[in-house]
Each structure stands twice: as C-alpha cells, then as structure tokens.
Amino acid sequence: MSSLTVLEPGPLATIQDRGRSGQAALGVPASGACDRASYSLANRLVGNPVGAAAVEVTYGGLVLHADGDLVVAITGAPCTGVPLNAPTMLRAGQVLRLGAPASGLRTYVAVRGGIDVPAVLGSRSTDLLSGLGPAPLVANQTLPVGSSVEPMPGVDLAPVAHPADGTVVLRVTPGPRRDWFTDAGWASLVSQVYEVSSNSNRVGVRLDGEPLERARTGELASEGMARGAIQIPPSGTPVVFLADHPVTGGYPVIAYVASADLDACAQVRPGQPVRLLSS
C-alpha cells in the first residue's frame, strides 16, 4: 500500500470527506469538508470515487512526503508553492510544501486512491466539536493511500475562480427566529459590514460588528439547526454554522446563508469584511 508522510501539519490539517449526515437525531453532527465544491473537485481531478477522504488544510503550512509515486490535486484556497486545480504526479521521495494561501482559508489535497484511514460512523471526517473521526494531522504521521479509483478524468486544469479577497457577500434569508429581532435589528444584519473574527473555526464563522436589537428577551428551548444557520448569542453578533456545528442550539437563528454561498463562507479568513445580503 502506498502512503504519504506528514512532515509538518501547519496550523491545522484534518482528514475530511462528505461527513456523517443522517445521524443528527443521535446528536452526531454532519461534519465533513467545509468547502464542499473544492473538496469534490480535488477528488474528481485525481479520479477518486465520490466521497473519498482528502486533507483539509487551514491556512497552508502542510508539508507532505510522497512515500511512493502518487497523483495528487490541490484545490480551494490557492497556497503558494504548489500546482493548483490540476492533477499532479508526485514521485517517490518528493515533498509537497503548501505555502500560505493568497486568498481564502481552506485548501484541499486529494490523492488518487483516497486517504485510507478507518471510518467512524460511516465517515473519515475529523469532527473537532464532537471528537469523532481521526485526530488532526501531526508531524511524522503516515497517511495510508487506498486503491479504490476510477479512470482519470482527462482534465489538465479545472478553470475555477480562487476564493475572493476583499469583501465577501453572502446571501441570506430570514430564519425561524427572525421575529426575535426588531426590524431595525434585521436591517442592521443585512446592511452592516462585518469583520470575520479570529475565533472562527470549523464549527462556525464568528462575525464582529454592531450587536443586533432584539424584539424579545427570554430563553429559546434548544432546537435543531442546519449548516448555514446564523445564530445570535447574547453578544448580539452572528455565528454562521459550518461543518462541525452542533445538531441543536439554544440561541435564536435570525437567518440562514444560502446553501450556494456556504462554500464561500467556509473560505473567509479572520479580518476579512463580510456583508450579508437579504435575498
């Protein structure tokens, strides 16, 4: 069996696939790749079956050693020093060194055959909230590469746009607890320019800005929430739920991010301006 060796993990690198959806009633979060389009593209470029496990790299820094001849593809946030959005041959002994991304936050490294670690509850995804799945990557770890493949796609380069720098606009629609906020609160949500907080992670993107005015006080009984939910905790500033979000939450959800914009939401980086557009 072929393998990759992690020489340096960078700030955070985890194994991800499509996640564990379907088990939320048991309290099991969906998890899975945050930017699902980039993850899927990486797999397609190396001819992997749908759902193969890849590496999700947060803000570059990952250094991998090819223990044998391998084909890889790197998508998502464009890290310097590596070929992007194209299948690439790595010879045995070659080292892949991901620099910091020029824009975006999360980069996906797929290897032909997939990362072959044991699945937990049907998925190889690392869930940082629940502690399910493999631990984040560490130096000197060996990543086994599987053998389940499909024909190579015959594509040299996928013409995809890099994640945006500058202001990111995410479309939103009113959520189940829109009425917990005044009209002024809603207007503030969809007009102000937020800044992505450094407290953001795979659970959620926290946005810093002006607190929203509430129409009612009191506690909400915990209720189910889906990816893209915009929860407003007592601080009054939004948290947008990403892949590792808990299945239920106790703060009112004022809005949801359109599912078509969730991958872009997974690519915003701390300090980046974000606008929420009522759609």
């Binding site: 379907g22 939320a24 189940p176 009984a221 209720e223 929430m225 889906a226 299945v247 239920t248």
Partner: peptide
Amino acid sequence: DVVPAARTVLVT
C-alpha cells in the same frame, strides 16, 4: 436528517 428537540423538529 430529522432532528427532534424540545418543541421543534428540524427536517433537512
């Protein structure tokens, strides 16, 4: 997914 809670059921 079907997620029951105290007063609600979320269905995706």
